[in-house]
């Protein structure tokens, strides 16, 4: 459904834009319907840039992004973009800044109606909104007709997902949507993503938190400095990380039942087998992947 091939993003930086910063380097990945793909990386790994490029919020430098067969990275014009956003929507990190505090929170729904469904009758629209709110497991009594400050972060975040669902979307880009939520409400939003997946929605889940990426996703992509370090089925990536960088990352994640010392001791006792990583010549900015086992790829080592 969504297909990124050889996507690069180069920012011009420095006083006169003379220097270049490669934020995304030769990324290839796909998202199928009914699949959650986690993009995991530390700050500066390019994970959010990929999300923004898919949403058309920033241009790609080279390569292509295809959605249902059509190249969407070079969509021009208001109506073409509007059609694209009917099928692809994003939800972002900070739910509090996504709402205008002066208006009631459900204004986001009426804005969708005025731009996408102007001809729908009031009763039909109301049913549609209630259905979307039910899907995100909110009680309409508690959330409609309220101002943003009267709702919790988890409720606001779920309202934004409900807003996206009004549009019959096929792909949701979820950029760090739970980083600002409390532990007790985080899991509700994650479970909601699981429900949406079962309804056939493709989700690109951008996160820096490895345990959250693991909980909900089918496939995981670990990014480092803009290039893919490792990509594969989530279970395999977490049980058998092949790239040295993924191993390092996993050993640093605070776990609930094992201390760092225990993880280190275990790693030292059973040192993982090294795999041969692909290499590129100096000056070559491609980032080839090698398939080590079925569907499980490792990428180049960058220092």
């Amino acid at each position: 459904m969504l297909e990124l091939s050889h996507v690069h993003k180069v920012y011009r930086v420095g006083a006169f834009g003379g220097a270049k910063l490669r934020a995304v380097r030769d990324v290839n990945l796909t998202v199928k319907p009914g699949e959650v793909v986690s993009l995991i990386g530390e700050s500066g790994s390019g994970k959010s840039t990929i999300g923004k490029m898919v949403l058309g919020l920033t241009r790609i430098s080279s390569g292509s992004i295809r959605f249902e067969g059509a190249d969407v990275s070079r969509i021009r014009g208001f109506s073409a973009k509007k059609e694209y956003y009917r099928r692809v929507q994003g939800v972002f990190q900070d739910p509090f800044s996504s709402f205008n505090p002066i208006f009631k929170a459900d204004r986001v729904f009426s804005m969708i109606r005025s731009s996408y469904f102007p001809e729908m009758s009031d009763a039909d629209w109301r049913d549609k909104v209630l259905a979307a709110i039910g899907t995100v497991r909110l009680d309409p009594e508690n959330v409609l007709n309220k101002y943003p400050h009267q709702l919790s972060g988890g409720q606001l975040q779920r309202l934004l997902i409900a807003r996206a669902l009004l549009l019959d979307i096929k792909l949701l880009v979820a950029d760090e949507i739970i980083s600002m939520l409390d532990a007790s409400t985080r899991i509700d939003v994650l479970n909601l993503l699981g429900d949406l997946k079962e309804r056939g929605l493709g989700i690109l889940f951008v996160t820096h938190d490895l345990s959250l990426g693991n909980y909900v996703s089918d496939r995981s992509v670990i990014l480092r400095k803009g290039a893919i370090a490792e990509m594969g089925p989530t279970r395999r990536v977490f049980e058998n990380p092949l790239h040295p960088y993924s191993r390092h990352l996993l050993s640093c994640v605070p776990q609930l039942h094992r201390t760092w010392a225990e993880v280190d001791a275990e790693l030292a006792a059973n040192p993982p087998e090294d795999v041969e990583l692909p290499t590129v010549a100096d000056g070559d900015d491609s980032a080839p992947l090698v398939e080590v086992e079925k569907g499980h790829f490792v990428g180049i080592d960058q220092n």
Partner: peptide, 14 residues
């Protein structure tokens, strides 16, 4: 309510 490295929605829903 805390997901861990290793738990997925398939195993058990938190």
């Amino acid at each position: 309510a805390l997901p861990e490295v290793g738990t997925t929605t398939e195993d058990a829903r938190l």
